[in-house]
Amino acid sequence: MTQDDLRAGQIDTSRPHPARIYDYLLGGKDNYEVDQQAGDELATAAPEVRIGLRANRAFLQRAVRYVVGSGVRQILDIGTGLPTSPNVHEVAQKVAPDVRVAYVDNDPIVNGHAGALLSGSGTTSIVLADLRDPQAIVDHPEIRRIIDFDEPVALLLVAILHFLTEAEKPEEVVATLRDALPAGSFLVLSHATDDFADRSAAKAIYSKATATLNLRSRPEVERFFDGFELLEPGLAQAPFWRPDTTPPPRSSEIGFYGGVARKPA
């Protein structure tokens, strides 16, 4: 998908969209019947999906608190999805009110809903762009208005890379973004896996969506951290990355890995 395609604002309601399926499964209302049907099928194929998505969301919030607590004051969140409170900027600014957040998503619906909720302070923005064109994201004037790439940045790639096929070269995508970040920056990443259960039926559901589901093993997910130093406890199932409460029942079944890493000097 090119940037021109995105600017055209084409909203495809004939096929499920990952962000809208996610919204539906989290109890949101910004979705269509095709998304609801896909979500119900997904919950049948992978019964732990709802607790998995909540665990992924909780991992995101813990990771944001960590990186902001470590001193980072700017966040680039690619594949933000539809707004679900508390959003990244709300979590971050509760720790440090001066944090700046740039959101990126390729769904015009996400762009519209997120834009309506952003603060008027000029410290938070939403850009319509596609992860598959990472250089365009880095070079986007609105991203450059919010993000100073001479200072540490927290890059969030949460539940997004599994929508890129190998042909779309996800390692190169991450490397392009990594190379734009200065030393001291962080990568917060989560990714779906079938290491804990056969999820071929779930993959089949996404074959009818606007993006396919590409599940990867632990070693395959770890490669995205090349050039970064993984922080303890390394790559873990999402509920077990520095939990601040008792992980929910059935956490051992959750097919999401999560990790936070720092770019060394």
Rank of each mutant, 00 (worst) to 15 (best):
V153A: 09
A197V: 10
D195F: 01
E151N: 11
L161D: 03
S190E: 09
L181I: 04
D194A: 11
A175T: 09
L156I: 15
D179H: 10
G184V: 01
A183R: 15
E151C: 08
V188R: 09
K169W: 06
L189C: 09
P182S: 13
A201E: 14
D179F: 00
K169Q: 15
K169G: 03
R178Y: 04
L155V: 03
L156Q: 00
A167C: 05
D195T: 09
P170M: 02
V188T: 13
I160F: 03
F196K: 10
V153M: 11
E171Y: 12
L189P: 05
I160W: 11
F186K: 14
L156K: 04
E168G: 02
A201T: 08
L155P: 03
H162K: 12
V174K: 06
S200T: 14
A180C: 09
F186H: 14
E151W: 10
P182Q: 10
E172N: 13
D194S: 11
A183Q: 13
F196P: 00
A201W: 01
G184A: 09
A154T: 01
S190M: 13
E151P: 04
V158R: 00
T193Y: 08
A159P: 03
F186R: 13
A167L: 11
V153R: 06
D194H: 10
D198M: 00
P170E: 07
L156N: 01
L177Y: 10
F186N: 01
A197E: 15
H191D: 07
F163P: 06
L157M: 08
K169M: 14
H162I: 07
T193N: 10
L177V: 01
P152F: 05
S185K: 03
P152Y: 04
L187S: 04
E166T: 08
A159T: 11
A159C: 10
L189W: 07
I160C: 12
F196Y: 15
F196T: 05
L189T: 11
A154Y: 03
F186W: 12
P152I: 07
T176R: 15
L155W: 05
L177C: 04
A201D: 13
L155F: 05
L157R: 08
L164S: 09
S185Q: 01
